[in-house]
Amino acid sequence: MFANLILLIGITLMYSTPLIFGALGGVISERSGVTNIGIEGMMVIGAVAAATASYFTGNPWIGFLAAGACGALVALLHAVASVSFAADQTISGVAINMLAPGLALFACRRFFDGAAMTPIAPKLPKILGESGLAGTAFANLNVNVTTVLALVFTVIMWFVLYKTKWGLRVRAVGEHPAAADTLGIDVYKVRYCCVILSGMLAGFGGASMTIAIIAQFTQTAISGHGFIAMAAVIFGKWTPFGAYGACLLFGFTQALVIMLGGGDFVVPSQILSMLPYAMTIIVLILFVGRSVAPKADGVPYVKGSR
């Protein structure tokens, strides 16, 4: 029983990690007023970049950084569309979600002789090394280093958003861009930075799936995680810690799927697999009306209009 509990906590932390990175990306982008439905696509790009770079260099940290960089590059596209061209941010995000898997698979097949998955790549370390706590009841608490990084990033984002001048500006731009503009704050620059940052974080999220949880990129490595992360942003009221907590909840449902699926439980695995998605809808039903989005979220800012 106790071992099961530890296992449940371990798996929850593990599976919530990619979601947390994705959700942090969503928080920073939406706080600046840009809806980013493309988080999913940016995570896919990060996932393939991490596994590929890690495989070729043998250094998973290079893979992790490559994932951030590639995610940021894709996010740049979204920024150009939604900030400079005042495009429909939903369509742009959807386009990125189409483009990214194509790009990811194309790259994968190009580098690995037409295979739709990468070979096994070196993984990022666990916090206590490969065999830390091995043999003890707490073995499953030796989590991936990305799990710790996710928490560190959450704290940093909270500090930046609420305790520094940049955070004040980001929040102002997301609430009332015209007000920020009249005080000489470059709304476009702030939004570009935030969207690119969100891509980087989403890229890290992809990496924490393919070089931490599993050790390769596959077509289904990222399947809806970006969207669950977006739901976590709403559930978490657009705050870093709120999103973090929401992701833990979603990670927990994922852990339940694995724990229940493993035993001699009567529920078929396909039905269990629906749990995280159904859970997301239920959570949204319960909480969506009660949280308030940044006022200018999703509204392109055109200079000279109010």
Binding site: L77, A81, F85, A86, A87, A95, L99
Partner: peptide, 10 residues
Amino acid sequence: GTIVFFTALP
């Protein structure tokens, strides 16, 4: 994906 992306730019 590229085509859709460009149709999103009004």
